[in-house]
Amino acid sequence: MIQVQKAGLLTTIQDGGRRGYQKYGASPGGAADTFAYRLANIAVGNEAGAAVLEMTLQGDEFLFEEPAVISIAGADMKPEINGKRVPMWRPVYIDKGEILNFSNASRGIRTYVAIAGGFVGEDFLGSFSTYLSMNAGGYKGRKLGRGDVLSVKNPNNLNEEVKTSLSRSSKEKGFTYPPWRVPGPGHFRGGSPGELRAFPGRHYELFDSGSKEAFETEKYKAGSKSDRMGVRLDGVALTLRESQDILSEPVTYGTVQVPSNGEPIILLADRQTTGGYPKIAQIISVDCAKAAQLRPGEAIGFRMVTHPEAEQLLLTVEDRLARCEQSVKRKIMEG
């Protein structure tokens, strides 16, 4: 059991999201930065899809009422135990009675805490993800608050292995960790800082030439009203060649839609399943996690790539992730 001693700004239980319910209008949800989420689970030997905590901008303080193995990935919120920095991107064994605290995120906004076994959440449509607008799933359908107590699912063999090997090493600081770590997302996805790669959306050709050019050359800033539904961008307004009604049709993770005020929105995990705004572009899967980490006020540019390039990047990155997972498994088994 883990108790929340101080609550962060917006911490929710999230997993890989709901699948198969978009046709009923239910948002897929799940971790907004799917990359950090997956790496956090890989680092503790969890199965893909295990539930984690997603913290936003400011993290929580947790009391460990029993020993646990966790991993922290995503934005650096300067995690500490007893005033000592706790390393990210690797399994960390934490002793019973220790307090893990996070402060504010520097670079990026979302931080993931995976625990060996995975957190327990309330199931909503086949997922533990917290569906905030429905007040359902995760921890009582809401963000974590002070005094909440989190439970952990039963560990698998790999979880047991990592726990046993780490519990043997010395822990005068209250925690211990192996010398290895998983690589950060930059290692996997490539690309340049401050840039999101995208390919033309279904309504790209409906935009006037000035808007198409602006989209590729201008900088856009993440707005303060951004949330798990989407990143609202401030910048040069984008307009259609002639005004036109767009019928509601499916949208996905990373779809860039342009409402009538002309300011684009990048859709994230808690997006609606369909949208009636023109879609100028689609962020490639590999860069969606980067969009999910944009800080309010942070500037970003778009670089157009082709759909085949997006696919090749996706396959390359998925292959690297699979290799990373295999390599972590070997390291855990070797103790």
Binding site: Q22, L247, E249, P250
Partner: peptide, 28 residues
């Protein structure tokens, strides 16, 4: 095939792209 989402004029199909790797160059 992960899921399909019907709408007014057509439907979206969500699929497991990495499942087609490396035999085929373009899952799409």
């Amino acid at each position: 095939l992960f899921e399909i989402v019907p709408s007014y004029t057509g439907l979206a199909v969500y699929y497991d792209a990495p499942a087609f790797y490396p035999e085929h160059s373009s899952p799409y």
